[in-house]
């Protein structure tokens, strides 16, 4: 187990280096610091001095990969790549370009509101999708099942934006049940969280419940299920004890990988509901073209994804004792 984990972590290193180099190429080569300065300072009528000054203040006036003028190790370290991209490895994200705030500090304070929405959506969502899918599987090939599938396809076809805009309109504006948007810290936050959480769950029901139903139906057609029925077990018992247990493996593959990514929050929901989480932080950075924040989020996202992959492998051993990690 330990050896497996060490190997997986070692395997993650080249991937993270790849992500790092890729983001560097994207953010500094395709889009040179000069372009960045012009974007931040305003497209036209920017004097060259202003651009040089902007670059100097942020340390973007150095060579990209290799500084021929420096001596010794400074040849490598006195470059944009070393000073801006490499520190991402130890989560030193630097400062935002727009307002100069410390990105790492922002991330630490903003991940909690994000998590406050994403975690309930994930847990309650999973439970309700699985229940819904089990119901469809129980009534398989009847009109209830067909109606369920049609409902899923319909729900899948509705834009996520519609759920948010419609939900805000009906529940907050017409019925006045909860505030339209906003956030406060502490326990009173629930008022602001209920609606985004419910909408998050409703928005995901189509694709997920349908997918889980397919997994259940696949399991139901296996031999051990027939054996269980032949023993005289009730259909509910077969579904809950046998099918659900065995179907957990494919369900886990899709779900566990998403757990670490919950920290990143969701871009659209948070910006619609003005939740000060990482999702709205990213959206703001995108609209302000603040590349240092976007770069930090890209790197953080890949780290969390890789952690998710490792967690998935570990969860296999929990769900299925036959699988040994080596």
């Amino acid at each position: 187990m330990i050896a497996f984990l060490v190997r997986r972590i070692l395997y993650a290193i080249p991937i993270l280096i790849g992500v790092n180099v890729l983001t560097f190429l994207l953010f500094f080569i395709v889009n040179s610091p000069d372009d960045m300065a012009r974007m931040q300072l305003g497209q036209k009528r920017v004097s060259d001095e202003a651009v040089v000054k902007w670059k100097q203040e942020r340390g973007y006036d150095k060579p990209s990969f290799f500084d021929a003028q420096a001596s010794g190790i400074r040849k490598i370290t006195n470059t944009i790549f070393f000073e801006k991209s490499v520190p991402l490895f130890w989560f030193d994200f630097g400062r935002a370009e727009a307002d100069g705030r410390d990105i790492a500090h922002e991330i630490r304070s903003r991940m909690w509101p994000s998590l406050a929405i994403a975690l309930p959506v994930f847990i309650v969502g999973m439970l309700s999708y699985i229940t819904f899918a089990l119901l469809m599987a129980f009534f398989r090939a009847t009109y209830i099942d067909i109606a369920g599938i049609l409902l899923c396809i319909f729900a899948m076809s509705v834009s996520g934006l519609f759920y948010i805009i419609g939900g805000q309109y009906v529940i907050s504006k017409l019925w006045n049940l909860v505030p339209i948007s906003g956030y406060v810290g502490g326990l009173n936050a629930w008022k602001f969280l209920v609606l985004p959480v419910v909408i998050g769950i409703v928005g995901g029901v189509g694709a997920s419940a349908r997918w889980y139903r397919t997994i259940f139906i696949e399991e139901i057609n296996r031999d051990y299920v027939r054996t269980a029925r032949a023993k005289g077990l009730s259909e509910w018992r077969v579904l809950f004890r046998h099918v659900l247990h065995n179907a957990m493996i494919p369900i886990l593959t899709g779900a566990v990988v998403a757990i670490p990514l919950l920290f990143l929050g969701s871009l659209i929901t948070e910006s619609f509901f003005s939740i000060p989480g990482l999702g709205s932080y990213t959206i703001d950075a995108i609209s302000q073209q603040d590349f240092s924040v976007v770069r930090a989020m890209v790197f953080l996202g890949s780290v969390l994804y890789i952690i998710g992959l490792i967690l998935t492998d570990i969860s296999y051993t929990v769900a299925d004792p036959r699988i040994r990690l080596q």
């Binding site: 999708y129 996520g160 928005g203 995901g204 997918w211 990988v257 998403a258 969701s266």
Partner: peptide, 17 residues
Amino acid sequence: LASPGFLSKYLPATPGR
């Protein structure tokens, strides 16, 4: 193909997928 993971690349509104 229709696994939720595949869709979640585009639909950030639903982290549970």
